[in-house]
Computed example of a mutant assay.
Amino acid sequence: MTKPPDREVLLEFQRVGTYMKATAMDAATLTEVSVVGPLNHSQEMLKRTVLAKLNYVLAKKAGTSPQR
């Protein structure tokens, strides 16, 4: 899952103990979501997961079905 090409998304990765927290924020709507995963998972996997969650939340707010 990737971000739509016309959206600016800010990503942040932060280590919290034995976990990695990934946060994504849509710059246009200021919608922010987070996911947490173990440190041994790749940043790419966390990035895909947090972007999928952001797309889901944005679609839900817009009243449409999320893109896959």
Rank of each mutant, 00 (worst) to 15 (best):
T18V: 10
R68E: 14
M45D: 14
K61T: 03
R15C: 03
F13Q: 02
K60H: 09
M20A: 05
K53G: 10
D6W: 15
S42C: 01
M25Q: 15
L46A: 08
L10P: 00
T2H: 06
T18K: 11
N55P: 00
A62V: 05
V33K: 06
R68V: 01
S34P: 00
T31G: 04
K53M: 07
T2A: 08
P66I: 02
T23C: 04
L58K: 11
K61R: 13
T2E: 11
V36N: 01
R15T: 11
M25V: 09
D6G: 06
Q67A: 10
A27C: 15
Q14G: 00
L54M: 01
V9E: 04
A59S: 13
L11S: 00
V35F: 06
T49Y: 09
L58H: 06
A62T: 10
L54H: 01
H41T: 10
K3T: 09
S34G: 07
R7G: 00
E8V: 09
R68G: 12
V33Y: 00
V36C: 07
V36W: 02
N40Q: 12
A22V: 14
P38D: 15
A28K: 14
A27L: 14
A62Q: 13
T29S: 15
L10S: 10
L39G: 05
A22W: 09
T29N: 06
M20P: 04
G63F: 01
E32N: 03
R15L: 04
T23K: 05
A59G: 04
K60Y: 12
M20N: 11
E8M: 03
H41P: 00
T64E: 05
M25W: 00
E44R: 14
P5Q: 09
A27R: 13
P38Y: 08
P4I: 06
V9W: 06
Q43L: 15
M25R: 15
P38C: 09
K61G: 00
L51K: 02
Q67I: 07
K47T: 04
T29D: 03
L58A: 01
T64S: 06
Q14M: 11
T18A: 10
T49G: 15
K21V: 15
G63V: 08
A24I: 12
E12W: 12
E8R: 02
K60I: 06
L10C: 01
L39W: 08
D26H: 09
D26T: 09
V50D: 02
M45N: 09
Y56G: 01
